[in-house]
Design a protein around this nucleic acid. Structure first.
Lengths: 276, 276
DNA sequence: ACCAACGGTTCAAATAACAAACCGAAAGCC
DNA sequence: GGCTTTCGGTTTGTTATTTGAACCGTTGGT
């Protein structure tokens, strides 16, 4: 199993195959850092420059990265577009969820985002912003959502196999804000609570003034493979607002799970029906 | 440089790194064959089962493929979605072109498609169909566009560096229909002609009753990195129809190149302006 | 003119990939 | 039921690939 690595956690001492190393290089491209030079990416990945060069060359030969003319920096290549189109054609995920996500943002007047569990890491896949407020939560550059410190993370974690939860909680858990829960036992309790409620909530656990709520999403294989969340400034999160957002979330969550061909676990279905 | 391999061309005797082998596995997933078992894919890629298994495992650990529950077959994983979203955010390609593509299909009443030059291979990225005729050209399952036998291929080839053209024409060229041009010298003449016209045309070179026209597309780096084409049944391609399609193509081609931040080579810009 | 950092290259040494044979399970097929 | 084939997956010794450190030639800053 791939090392669970997030935050500032340096993934040192890992022992991984060449392919994983190459694929990991792709992960260093982010919205905030779309172009990376050879030396930079070698440093980031903690790889030898020669190794890194060979990997990048091979990625480039296959269109997964490409070099922009000047300064020879690398960026993601066009191959991913083709593969993504193919994946979406077979398992509509982003395209299917996007309209629901947008209407959720509009309906709640807050920022909505959808995350996917990819290779044991929770990553945001799409965002939708509302024009309702001048101040909104932006998360353009978030690359990884820590399981223990976000509502999406908790929502997903609550519906994973026990072994997965254990693996996550066994790793060191970053104290991101003053209110981040980092005690494994307390987190377990928290997760059990999420399971009982059918949705998760986080008050400033990731960023101190952001309050968010999230629901788990289920795919056609019955797995909980993602989460849908609404994030707002803590100051805007009154009781009425929370109730409104929760309601919209449960609706939208049901909708996306259905679009994905998934089915809610029976207990969750009941919980959500009651709350509606 | 990666071997130019298309059609039924078996890519035997190649000497490629582990990473390329792994990435090539991803190419065996198509719309027509979205799920593949271990033994199948090993046969397709002409790899040892153990090797193939290891590669697939590593791809799976990184979310590039995943196994569906029953029968343990593999399919493309969610990682590609994330990367594609990132790529589109930085270099809007498919999303930017899609509306133009659709309006081109609607405007011409025929099938329009956009292809991208990925790692020396021309691959269709998106299609748009028109509802105007009951019979239309379908190309859902086309995986690779042979340069010598399609209008898109000729359009792209005409604007590549000489070395690239040579590499393509040096390979054996498949005789796909009775009218497919396979003589390198004749093809060179054809390509020169395309250069002089600013667009390419193919009458039944790929499928015997399909007539298509294509224009090259240029990206922000000044490369010709794709083609835009309209394909119709040969029987519908009268002179008036050809003129209409050509006009719409030049318009749409200009538009997409502009959206991509590219600039037309001066001679082409002039040609297209004159034709409009 | 210097120096540092860049992208890229080289080559011996270390490591990871390879092929073949094997395993238990499931699916035909008599 | 029993025989055979094929499946996904594993193991092993051999082999070929990957790796890391040092080394180029350039570029850009001071």
């Amino acid at each position: 199993m791939k090392a669970l690595a997030y935050g500032s956690d340096q993934n040192v001492g890992r022992k991984m195959g060449t392919v994983s190393k190459a694929l990991e290089l792709l992960d260093y491209f982010t919205k905030a850092r779309p172009l990376i030079g050879l030396s930079d990416i070698a440093r980031l990945a903690d790889l030898n420059k020669a190794t890194c060069f060979r990997l990048l060359t091979e990625l480039s030969e296959n269109g997964f990265v490409e070099q922009v003319g000047t300064s020879r920096e690398y960026r993601l290549g066009p191959s991913v577009l083709r593969l993504a189109a193919l994946r979406e054609a077979q398992v509509p995920t982003r395209d299917a969820a996007m309209p629901v996500l947008q209407s959720l943002a509009q309906q709640t007047g807050e920022t909505a985002h959808l995350s996917l569990l990819i290779a044991d890491i929770l990553r945001p896949l799409a965002h939708a912003y509302s024009a309702a407020h001048a101040t909104k939560v932006m998360l353009e550059d978030t690359e990884t959502l820590p399981f223990h410190a976000t509502s999406s993370g908790l929502a997903v974690l609550a519906f994973q196999p026990e072994a997965f939860r254990n693996a996550v909680l066994a790793k060191p858990l970053a104290q991101l804000t003053s209110t981040t829960l980092t005690n494994p036992a307390a987190l377990r309790a928290r997760i059990a609570e999420v399971r009982g409620l059918g949705y998760a909530e986080s008050r400033g656990g990731y960023e101190s003034d952001v309050h968010s709520m999230a629901v788990p999403l289920f795919d056609a294989l019955g797995r909980c493979s993602g989460a849908l969340a609404v994030a707002a400034l803590g100051t805007r999160m009154g009781e009425a607002q929370r109730r409104m957002i929760r309601y919209a979330l449960l609706q939208a969550g049901t909708e996306i799970t259905t679009l994905w061909g998934g089915t809610l676990p029976a207990d969750i279905a009941t919980l959500w029906r009651l709350a509606a």
